[in-house]
Amino acid sequence: MLEARLDTANLFKSAVDAIKDLVQDCNFDCNDSGIALQAMDNSHVALVSMMLKAEAFSPFRCDRNIALGVNLTSLTKVLRAAGRDDTLTLKAEDAPDVLNLVFEATAQDRISEYDLKLMDIDQEHLGIPDTEYAATISMPSAEFKRITTDLMAMSESVTIEATKDGVKFSSTGDIGNGSITLRQHTPVDKPNETVEIELSEPVALTFSLKYLTNFCKAQPLSNQVKLCLSAEVPLMVEYGLEGGSYLRFYLAPKIGD
């Protein structure tokens, strides 16, 4: 059986919130190392890969592999009943029909309990090759959100260009064009505002802004976001969570004719 308790429901609420508009039905794959999820959007252009390691929970118990087939819209309805600071416990039997969720507000001695019906989901699982990326950019997640939102007003797509001088986001549309350039920036007193560019070779790729703005719904999960790029491979956008847990998005590039 699975039993996994989080000190605050916040993490799980925010993670589900971040992916629910991209993927609808998906399996939460539980085993002794934690709870993982991999799902593609309907158009097979974007992929979500989430890993909540066992260490993120206290306690965490899962004796065998359990796949929880969940409709995220339904899960969102249940999670709406959880206070952000409630403790959240997920429980399931070995061959479960339901996922049991318990929210506890210890200060109020209030316990709420829900059973969410599960479904059988036959999901394609993709092997993601280990990639040595040409450029890895770490930047404030709020800044990335602002850039994608601002450029969305100009165009459907953005070209991300990483060079030794910095990273440039540029868009060209019907009304004109726009760009934002960030240079490496490491303020000692404000680590959350750090912009770091690791570059083995310059790279420029074009992506759909519709998907990138969608990924930015994960912004509340982490102050920093990591963008990993290599020529002609999918972009990886990573929101790192405590203890090595993460929420990653992969996005296939737009390719010139």
């Binding site: 097979h44 252009v45 993709l126 092997g127 090759p129 491979v233 999918p234 296939a252 390719i255 004719d257």
Partner: peptide, 14 residues
């Protein structure tokens, strides 16, 4: 013009 690639082109089915 550019066209949107899909992930199947890059990732293999596990």
């Amino acid at each position: 013009g550019s066209r949107q690639a899909t992930l199947g082109k890059f990732f293999t089915q596990a």
